[in-house]
């Protein structure tokens, strides 16, 4: 991993077209401004994980899983 220190107001380029600027920095949060072509998808890491997990959840949902859960879950009755 490449590690670079930047201050507020400073920026860096990724490739020719993507610029990332540090707009604000606090104790445990930074605010970034990203300038990139429309073709570049920008997504938070946790959103990408959620996307992958959702697809896996949809694909794995089946009668077998449901029956397994119903055998193991505490019943409300």
């Amino acid at each position: 991993m490449l590690v670079i220190w930047r201050r507020c107001g400073e920026s860096l380029f990724v490739g020719e077209d993507v610029e990332i600027e540090v707009l604000d920095a606090r104790a445990n949060r930074v605010k970034l401004g990203i300038t990139a072509p429309d073709s570049v998808q920008i997504v938070r890491r946790e959103t990408r994980i959620t996307r992958e997990e959702n697809i896996a959840a949809a694909l794995s949902a089946g009668h077998e899983m449901i029956e397994h859960l119903l055998r193991c879950l505490p019943r409300r009755n």
């Binding site: 946790e46 896996a56 959840a57 077998e64 899983m65």
Partner: peptide, 17 residues
């Protein structure tokens, strides 16, 4: 929580999302 059984024998739940 969405349940997934794609990762091994036991189902898991997505508590993060």
């Amino acid at each position: 929580a969405l349940v997934c059984s794609g990762y091994g024998a036991e189902p898991t739940a997505n508590l993060m999302a």
